[in-house]
Every structure is written in C-alpha cells, then in structure tokens.
Amino acid sequence: MQKQISVLFLLTFLTFSVWSCHKNDPAPVKTFHFYDSLHADGYLRSYLLNLPPDYNEGNNFPLVIALHGFAGNAGQMETDYKLTAKSNSAGFVIVYPEGVPSDGLLGLRTWNAGGCCDYAMHHNVDDVKFIRLLIQKLTEKYKIDPKKIYATGMSNGAMMTYRLGCELSTQLAAIAPVSGTLITRQPCEPARAVPLLHIHSSLDTTIPYPGGPGMANYYFPPVDSALRVWAGINGCIPTPNVITDAPLYTQTEYIDCTNNTSTQLFLTKDGGHSWPGGFQARPAADEPSKAFDATDLIWDFFSRYELP
C-alpha cells in the first residue's frame, strides 16, 4: 500500500512539474516583424516591432528603442538607418515607436521633447508615459532582458531620447542621440548616471551644433551645453579629452565618470543633418556623413552597458 502511494505521489509530482514548465514557457513566435499598438494618455499609439531570427531559441534579448525624427515614422527610420539588419545580426529586439500625428492635412508625427516639437509639444502629449508603457508591455510579453534596454533617436527623436534619459534613467541602460540636443523644459535630473553617446555634424544647420535657430525656427541650445550637463549628471571630469582627431570626425570623451559610465561625442566634419552611414532620407535632405556607420557605433556602445 505504501509503495502504491509513493508511486502515485511521484506521478502526480512529475505531471505537475511538466504542466508548470509548459505553462510558463512562452509559445514560439511565428511573426517576427509587425506593427502593433497600445493606448496611452488618451491616444492609440503605434509601433513597429522586430524580433531577431533566433528569438525562439534564445532568452534575455537586449532591446533598442529607436525614435524617428520630425515628420518621420517607423518604416522610414528602419529603412534609412539600416537598424533592423543590425539588430538581427546582433541578436537584439528593436522597436520603432511612432509619434502622435498632427491634426493637419499631412499628419506629421513628432515627439514632445520639452521645447520641441509641433503638435506633440503644443498638445503636451505624454510621450514619456507612452514609452514607459511600451517598455512594460514588451518586457512582459517578450523575452527581453530588463537590464539591457537602450534608446536612440534622430533629430526630434534624439531630443526625445535625451528626455527619456532624464525621466526613465532607471529603465534605460544607455542612450545615443543623433543630430539632436537636450531641450527639456524641466531640469534634467536622472535618478542614476546614464551612459551617453552623442553623434552630430559640424555642418548641421537644421539643429546647429553651436546652437541657435534651426528647424521650423525653433531655438536649439548648443550641443556642448547638453554634453556638459550630462557630464555633470554622470559625475565626469568637466573638461573632455580628444580621443580621436581623424580627417572626417573628432571623438571627444568626458572621463572618470560615476559607475564606469561615459559621455562621448562623435562630431563629423562632413554630412549635415543626417544619420552617418545611413541613406539619404529624401532627395532634398543632407547627404549622410561617410566618416563611420552610426548604427554600428551605437550598437558597440550599447553592448558595453547594462543596468546594475
């Protein structure tokens, strides 16, 4: 009788263990690249998600949040900057959120980065809340490592990247704005030091590196001031070092930062308001710099950092 009870207990335990394992294992995905949406702050927000080819076989994937520029969208950013190809080869999940479209005929999409831009700023759209909810949804639904979430963006998306670094510092391991600047209305006070890689062109007149009027007659603070603010946030020595002075770009870095973070600038001497190494966004747009591939540079930078 005791032997029968033991056998019955063993069978019950094994059955429960197998059921629990299958219950907690996520079902294999069949679609790796698709648009989806969520509700945030009264808006239905859209985004494009790409899972790497080895997603079903792996675990703990890093996530990159890629923010398009003024009047851009997810598909444009994905195509022009070759980000999906890079994320697939590197084994990252990448998501392209989209700004709220304006109520004009063109429905231009923008981000509320604080002092810019257009519909999103004028209507005080809570884009930080949208990204916070998006991170929550993706980390709950997909095999994403919450310690390895990063943000990058172009132009107005770069400004929004800075704002996310200010307000979502406990969720972002590092940020990499391209051709933008820090333009938040409120003081930037992250809860932790956040590694920063900034990429810009000295020839950019849309968002001028020295600061001043640019796109749509907005006034943009100098990029150097943004970097000094971030170096202070990261506890770096206040004077940057020149690491590389090449024919087409200069690399500077603030050193001795808190918790092995860094604040870096890659300033190109060619190109303009563009993504180095990417495609020209439209016929009248600035030619991208040929100094380096910004996508490769950003991935190398992100791969160095994770949240504690």
Rank of each mutant, 00 (worst) to 15 (best):
A284K: 02
T258Q: 15
K269W: 04
T258S: 15
F279L: 11
R282A: 03
G272A: 13
N259I: 04
K269R: 07
A285T: 07
G277N: 06
Q264G: 07
G277D: 05
H273F: 07
Q264L: 13
H273M: 07
W275A: 04
G278F: 01
K269Q: 04
N259F: 07
C257V: 15
D256H: 13
N260G: 00
W275K: 03
Y254W: 14
G272P: 07
T268F: 08
G277W: 03
I255P: 01
A281I: 06
T258H: 15
G277C: 05
S274D: 15
A285L: 11
N260M: 00
R282M: 01
K269S: 04
L265S: 03
G278S: 06
W275N: 02
S262R: 05
T268E: 04
P276M: 10
L265I: 04
C257M: 15
A281M: 10
N260P: 00
G271Q: 02
P276Y: 01
T258N: 15
T261V: 08
A285V: 06
G272Q: 10
S274C: 15
F266S: 01
F266C: 01
P283K: 11
A285G: 09
I255V: 11
D286M: 07
Q280T: 12
A284G: 00
T268Q: 14
A284D: 05
S274A: 15
Q280G: 11
F266L: 10
S262P: 05
P276A: 09
G277H: 02
G278C: 04
G272F: 13
D286C: 08
G272L: 12
Y254L: 08
I255S: 09
T263L: 00
I255K: 10
D286G: 07
K269I: 02
C257I: 13
D286A: 11
D286Y: 10
Q280K: 14
H273R: 07
D286Q: 09
T263V: 00
G278A: 06
L265C: 05
L267V: 10
H273I: 06
D286T: 07
S262H: 06
G277K: 03
A285S: 14
Y254C: 06
Q264D: 13
P283E: 14
T268K: 15
T268A: 13
T258G: 15
K269T: 02
H273S: 05
N260I: 00
D270E: 07
I255T: 11
N259A: 11
T263W: 01
N260R: 01
R282E: 04
P283A: 14
S262C: 10
S262I: 06
S274Y: 11
S274P: 09
D256F: 14
D256P: 05
A285H: 12
N259T: 08
T268C: 13
I255N: 09
D270Y: 11
G271W: 02
F266Q: 03
P276E: 13
F279W: 09
T268M: 10
D286V: 07
P276L: 06
F266T: 01
L265G: 01
Q264E: 14
Q280S: 12
H273L: 06
A285D: 14
F266H: 03
F266P: 00
Y254T: 07
P283S: 14
P276D: 13
